[in-house]
């Protein structure tokens, strides 16, 4: 276990190098579904942060008691409990948002990012590292959602978080806030990220070759 990443590495990796949306392509159902407004994307990110943080901490605390053949049951149970808490909390204190996000909050239960982090990190590393990992991954997830949501909201409605950013003459591209807009935006952004990564690694190799 000596080669496990440290807390800081875990945190940093989640944000860009192992970004859940752009690099791991996990949790794409909410990524496509709730990114027609930046506000929805932020709330979704916050909900995932809470669930992932709690689930990772809990799993990490009991990691020595886990039996290999029962670990998935324990993960699912833990995740489902925290998701239900978030769902009820939103319905009580952010009723309209809870209606807008609809079934996607309960669907966090099946969001692969969370079970993936429980398996990869929390079931093997101590609480602090697991919490840092959760924070990094959820920030990366939120970043992914907000980047897609910004493009869609600006092009689709001319507004960002309720403020007009496009000139009044902008003809709102309604398709961007509809489901096809999610696929278009995500595809283009994913392509751009891959291009940047490929370029970076190519120049990195050149440097190595030169030195």
């Amino acid at each position: 276990m000596a080669d496990q990443p440290t807390a800081l590495e875990r945190f940093a990796q989640g944000i860009l190098p192992e970004n859940p949306v752009y690099r791991q392509l996990l949790g794409l159902c909410p990524t496509l579904a709730v990114t027609n407004s930046v506000k929805g994307a932020i709330i979704m990110g916050a909900a995932v942060l809470f669930v992932l943080l709690c689930a990772n901490a809990m799993i990490s605390l009991i990691r020595n008691l886990l039996k290999p053949h029962l670990r998935i049951v324990v993960f699912t149970l833990t995740i489902a409990a925290f998701v239900t808490i978030v769902d009820r909390f939103l319905a009580a204190y952010m009723y309209q948002m809870s209606k807008d996000l609809g079934p996607y909050i309960p669907l966090i239960i099946v969001n692969c990012i969370i079970i993936c982090r429980c398996e990869v990190c929390a079931s093997k590393q101590p609480v602090f590292t697991a919490a840092a990992d959760a924070a990094g991954q959820s920030l990366g997830f939120t970043l992914g959602l907000v980047s897609i949501a910004s493009v869609r909201e600006i092009l689709g409605t001319g507004m960002l978080l309720g403020f007009r950013v496009m000139p009044a003459a902008w003809p709102d591209w309604v398709i961007m806030v509809l489901p096809p807009g999610a696929f278009l935006t995500f595809g283009l952004l994913l392509g751009a990220v891959n291009w940047v990564v490929a370029k970076k690694s190519a120049s990195g190799k050149k440097h190595q070759g030169a030195s």
């Binding site: 886990l66 029962l70 909390f89």
Partner: peptide
């Protein structure tokens, strides 16, 4: 462990 966690979470969710 599963049973213990299930009862614990059940109680927590009931109070929520």
């Amino acid at each position: 462990l599963v049973l213990l966690l299930a009862s614990f979470f059940g109680a927590a969710l009931a109070s929520v």
